[in-house]
């Protein structure tokens, strides 16, 4: 199947990016939870460092996804879809994209504010986004956690909507994002 989008379905490129981000997001929530439960120490440092590296990876993939979205027209929404659902779909998609940037960026800023410069898997050290500040770190931690909650809610809405289209409306929307859902090509 094609790497790029067609009028009927997403290409292999956007599909791969979509599901890779899904996997990495699940890993992010897991790493954050594990780190949260650990006492201050080496294991916590290791867990948070992995969380940061995966976060920076997601940031890169998010940039790639938005670029792809802007350059390669996605398949149109089903013609039968009511107007309010179109608006909701566009809003939630762009809100999800926005969070794919906001989550890693607030995490990166948090790290900078605590004077824990971020490195990507120990290979590249990233510049600090803000100066060291205890208060700023505390505030950013709040924002990071609130955004994580918002992301969970949006993901839930996104998944429920996709399932409704697939199993209630039966308009084949979900299969457009599945590599093996190519029968409609």
């Amino acid at each position: 199947m094609a790497l790029t989008n067609s009028a009927q379905r997403y290409g292999l490129g956007p599909q791969l990016l979509h599901w890779l981000v899904v996997l990495l997001l699940a890993l992010q929530f897991l790493l954050a939870e594990l780190a949260d439960e650990l006492p201050d120490g080496l294991e916590k440092l290791a867990m948070l460092s992995r969380h940061k590296s995966v976060g920076i990876t997601i940031l890169g993939l998010a940039a790639l996804r938005v670029a792809w979205r802007l350059l390669d027209r996605p398949p149109p929404l089903p013609a039968a879809m009511p107007g309010w659902q179109r608006i909701a779909a566009h809003f939630s998609h762009w809100a999800l994209y926005a969070l794919l940037f906001a989550m890693p960026l607030t995490g990166w800023m948090m790290s900078s504010a605590a004077n824990y410069p971020v490195s990507w898997f120990g290979l590249v050290q990233l510049p600090d986004l803000v100066g060291t500040s205890h208060d700023l770190h505390e505030a950013l931690e709040e924002v990071h956690e609130t955004l994580a909650g918002a992301l969970l809610v949006l993901v839930a809405v996104h998944v429920l909507a996709a399932l409704k289209h697939q199993f209630v409306d039966r308009d084949g929307l979900l299969s457009r994002m599945l590599p093996w859902g190519g029968s409609r090509d």
Binding site: L45, K52, Y116, S119, Q125, L126
Partner: peptide, 9 residues
Amino acid sequence: TQAGAVFEG
């Protein structure tokens, strides 16, 4: 260095 990133104190 922590996690491959240099920090100052």
